[in-house]
Simulated scan of single mutants.
Amino acid sequence: MEYLVTMTTQVPAGTPEGDVQDIRTREAAHSRDLAAQGNLLRLWRPPLQPGEWRSLGMFAAGDGDQLEKVLASMPLRVWRTDEVTPLAPHPNDPTGQTEKPRSVAPEFLTTFTVTVPAGTPRETVDAALAREAASAREQAGQGHLLRLWTLPGQGRALGLWQAGDGAEIQAIMASLPLSVLGWMDVQTTPLTPHPSDPALAGG
């Protein structure tokens, strides 16, 4: 099973810089080990405020208990809080497995929330979902859509995308059939590379 983990680190005031660097070095080494074991799939940095220390990680584990053991084994956990979101397969996922980036294009996470208007005929819904599935295949074929998962909650999904810039990803989101219908709310998070990302390290 795959999980998205938001990892927020707060170093205690007065901690010597040498101690911080030591743990960061051990964290990087342990991340490589977790990647080799197949537990750590990807790492990114989301937009950060000055002084904020936060990462997004894609992990694989048999269940929540195994994931907790993985997270607890990471050296930075002594200063870190983790927010775990379980991910389930999505029928429009283009690969069924985590891919490495296909290019150096920026990556984005998108959270979709679909709300079908009450009273919409079933055949109208089915036709819209079929167009959305076809669009997902097209976007994957163009190298934009890398992964798609189902999130907890009704009508929610998470996507991993590549695009040239923020304007291009917004144009892609606006072109999706469910967005055109006004049935889908999209929240987009731009991602920047993390030095311990297994994909960038050749993981």
Rank of each mutant, 00 (worst) to 15 (best):
L178C: 03
D93C: 06
A171R: 13
P89S: 00
M184Q: 12
G38Y: 05
T81P: 01
A199D: 06
R45P: 11
D82R: 10
G155H: 05
M1K: 00
V125F: 11
R26W: 08
T189V: 15
V186R: 15
P86D: 03
L56G: 07
L40D: 12
Q97W: 05
Q10G: 08
Q162T: 02
V114N: 12
P177Y: 10
A35I: 13
P101A: 06
D126R: 01
E17L: 11
G141F: 04
I172L: 15
E52A: 09
A72V: 03
R42I: 09
Q139N: 09
M58L: 15
V78K: 08
E123R: 07
E2N: 14
L129N: 10
E132P: 00
V125W: 07
V84W: 13
L129Q: 14
R54F: 00
V5A: 13
G182F: 11
L109A: 11
G203V: 12
V11S: 11
E107T: 10
R26S: 08
E168Q: 15
T8N: 14
Q142C: 04
Q49R: 13
P91F: 02
A134N: 05
S179A: 15
L160K: 07
P94Q: 03
A61M: 07
G155Q: 07
L145H: 00
E83P: 01
P117Y: 09
R42M: 04
E68Q: 11
S175G: 14
G159M: 10
V70L: 01
V180T: 02
T120Y: 07
P12R: 03
E17R: 15
L109H: 12
P94A: 03
D19A: 08
P101G: 02
A167C: 02
G62M: 06
